[in-house]
Design a protein around this nucleic acid. Structure first.
Lengths: 239, 239, 239, 239
DNA sequence: CATGAATGAGACTTCATTCAT
DNA sequence: AATGAATGAAGTCTCATTCAT
């Protein structure tokens, strides 16, 4: 949680005597409250249709109080997005079963993404999608870095897979990444637009099963399975 | 209105607001002009940041004239999106080499999508993405139908592939569709956000090459081996 | 009237086919109305305390209408000030009795300034004074040019006086200008702050009578004696 | 409060808000600090653009503390202006070389004014100029008295000059005062608006030299200089 | 005494939309 | 049909000021 993103100050004061404002417990709570309400409203409405009035109303505070803690609507939105990214990144980095096979790790990554997006993320996902386009202006510049960190765990995983031979190496990593994230986001998109519910566990398993042949080295799967059968037969003979 | 799609007319623009009028050539041209300018502005700015003022200015006409032909900004935007969908659908339906192999047809579909999206569609894509979320309100309801028609050619293609044995039949069509559209959209997304240029021909070919192994029917030996492996895993889990 | 100040578009369309908008009579009247109300309010309240709300209220129009004709409060204020300067400049340039003696012309300049300032200008004078300080930012840059044009008639007059021998030439023009404008503004200042009324005709005549000895070329005997005195003082300082 | 001026205390700061309190040294220091910071900020920004936040920040204290010692922003500003006036008045009253000639005293007055204005006063000068206009409301009433005390030394000086025959008596004192203060302020104004630097010593001497002929009784200068030459010749003959 | 925290009031500005001509 | 003109409604943001601790 709260890895050192350039976008935001950590909500938990990791190092106390760090900045000028000691950030009292009360202040911290207010910041958290506003971020929570802001996340809700931005997720529900998108940036333009979200209003600072509504964010304040949900907390039962004055609009001016929101601006006491965040200089602008834009800054608040950036913090909301940054925090959300950080949560996802932290959840994956901390939970990744690094000892398991590449395929199992891949399943974990996909499952975690689907889960976090679906809990509250659909709106935020759309928020990032629509606001990221204001590229080169206010948002967007910071988004590229967030996006990089966001996809880093998967990229490393795929690179390790390539090194170990579990993942085909004749395709650029970037394309492989699109192969994984793309369908995932498309599924989410369908969930959003068609308001259809899905079973996260099942969907994650199915998606990886579907992708896996494409990620493996050609014939690799076949070779692996033949080896498995041979091993099994040998084991049976030994027993 | 009285057009194939519930939202708009694909090639022959819809009748003017009053269906009493015979839709003179002049009126038709005005509607087309406004739709063209509207598409530009909505694509560049997104719904909220687009202004009717700018749309009128690009045509050198009065803002009020826009409202003579469209009841509201919202209606205009819907028509813009609807027309754009229709264009893509028509381009694919008309150009699809139905005699070629499924793989070749798939390549055509992917290539056409990438091309149309990248010409002017990135903005419109983001527009749909962000506005589609106003679900249950004004947009959104109509989008589901558009989405259905939009993905229909690919769905039919995949269905034919399954029937002919060229595409595996053990996976729901919907998942296969995500497998194709997902990476495609993800690539586009990278193009937008990172401002990176891609070669459409190469990208389309690479993407299909990558996807093909996952779409193909597994060979018989593979199927058997996979079943074996699944049985083993289940047994181990039970023990 | 409406000399080509860089600050404003002429209110009367001097050259009809000049800009895109033909500036209809109605529009021109609105612009004039807003400028009039704006001049009143800015003069009464100063820039910061003037509100666009009040300007609109005085005209019985919506606040939005004000912004239809002026992009911002700041732009409106600049136009107000620019127009006012132009009026003063035009009044002096057109009324100056160029055939009369320098002293009579000087009296005309002083009288005109006092008159125009006192009719409505006191507030505007203070406005320029207080807003000009935001130098190097928004205002101020344009003010230097306005100030130059504003003082140009007097400067030329003094220069002509120097050339003809009616005004002493041994003092920089700039200092002479301060000698004329300074007391004039100070009188105005007293009028404003002490709310005292003055007789413009009398005041103008008195002021010029007072200044004239200081502006005239010193007589020869005086010059020699002054030199003597200066030499003595220098010698004393050296001893 | 209980100070010479109705507005403030010149050297010993006024008592704290509650006159019950004995005005501890600590309290006095606080008041002085706030007045100092307030003077800076009001001078730099003008009344409206100055914020209590910035004043508190410059002292590293809470905004609320400012309001512990001053009831309102307005009151603080009045005290700031009053203190500044008192400083100028005190500097002139204490330094005036009453034994020297009227002309030399005049030079001292002009020099002192220029000096004090240019050190920090330009901003305060503009502050008074712009805020004095809120006549009849909060400021303004007290300003008349300040203005009177502020110009008193010069008025007395001119009156003495008239009595001694060194200054012409056929012109109202008030007009003579404008003749002195006017150009002085106009010079300052140019310094502010054009950001031009001047040499105070030189400027003061030049200005008085320029003004002196106008202040003298007609022919007075000539008479004075002739007397000087006669005295000199007599002295030389005696030596 | 000092202040952290909160806020009411109000400012400027934008924009889709209407209507008389 | 086309538009010039006007505006209601709403939004973001600022700041002096208050009050409990």
């Amino acid at each position: 949680m709260n890895s050192p993103s350039k976008l935001q100050a950590p909500v938990q004061p990791a190092s106390p005597p760090q900045r000028r404002a000691p950030a009292s417990a009360k202040t911290l709570q207010r910041v958290r409250d506003i971020l929570r309400a802001g996340r809700e409203v931005f997720a529900e409405r998108g940036y333009e249709r979200a209003t600072t009035t509504e964010i304040a109303q949900r907390l039962g505070i004055s609009e001016a109080t929101v601006f006491t803690y965040f200089h602008s609507k834009r800054e608040l939105c950036m913090r909301v997005i940054g925090d959300w990214y950080d949560e996802i990144i932290a959840a994956i980095e901390q939970g990744l079963p690094r000892e398991a096979s590449v395929r199992e790790q891949l399943e974990f990554v996909v499952h975690t993404h689907l889960r976090l997006f679906l809990i509250q993320g659909t709106g935020l996902c759309a928020l990032v999608l629509s606001e990221g386009r204001t590229k080169g202006q206010e948002f967007g510049d910071a988004f590229v870095e967030l996006q990089r960190r966001y996809t880093a765990p998967l990229m490393e995983l795929l690179a390790r897979g390539q090194a170990s031979g579990e993942v085909r190496a004749d395709i650029p990593l970037r394309l492989l990444r699109s192969l994984v994230f793309g369908p995932m986001e498309h599924m989410l998109w369908e969930v959003i637009i068609a308001n259809r519910q899905i079973d996260i566990d099942v969907s994650a398993r199915d998606l990886v099963a579907l992708l896996w042949p494409a990620l493996q080295a050609p014939q690799q799967e076949l070779l692996g399975l033949r080896q498995l059968r041979a091993d099994l037969e040998a084991a049976l003979n030994r027993s």
